[in-house]
Amino acid sequence: MKILVCIKQVPQKDVPLKLNEAGTWIREDVSYEVNEPDAYALEEALRQKEKHGGEVVVVTAGPARAQQVLREALAKGADRAIHLEDDKFAHLDSVNTARAIAAAIAGESFDLIVTGLQSDDFGAAQTGVLLAEILGLPHATIIIGIEKTDSGLRLKRELEAGHYQWIEMPSPAVLTIQSGINKLRYASLIGIKQAKNKPLRKVAWAEVEPKLGKNLQQIERLYVPVKQKKTEMVEGPPAEVARKVVEYLKNSARVL
């Protein structure tokens, strides 16, 4: 199986984020990591390759710093990487991101394309599905199990509230992967060493620009959400905090 994995670099989960002065985006001087559902998509691709043979190719679109997530993927076992490298890629809407990726892989044919079900930054949950539409391939979302069959794929989809469904579809196909589908591996020392010599192709903005359209949605402003509730913030040493919380639970909330 020749598998493409689309991954994204996003701000680290625990880092405090600040707005830029114009209130249009975050200040970008933070640490980054691979989008968590994408890490599961990569792991699944590596496992499928280990079972069925083939090749795993990772692709990302973003500034120079995004190369880090490609290097990590190569260290974990991906065979080669494609980097659509430009600051401008970070501000494309989902449709244009999918168009850019499609343009970068034109001329290659993959049996399977996987990506995380959504990103931790935008959270639009659209790019994978849109890539399928652009490539004219069948797709399925929120996948937590993949079995290769003679004619294609047998997939386990997660539905709401603890429900599931098996579906079948021909390959090639595009799948969005749910976190928890597998156990993530760590890169080995030897893997990290080998990654340095694996091929990484850079794709410039100008190469894919002719395939892009106008962004059809526009972020007008970004802001800290307005509080829905009046929160009583409790401070102090642990014993004092505990006493204040218990007081609240007894007297105000009356749940003790």
Partner: peptide, 19 residues
């Protein structure tokens, strides 16, 4: 404008249709 959460709910964004 549609309001949606971004960065796992740390921020909200007002988004308009441009087409």
């Amino acid at each position: 404008l549609l309001t949606r959460q971004m960065f796992q709910g740390k921020f909200a964004a007002d988004v308009s249709f441009a087409g």
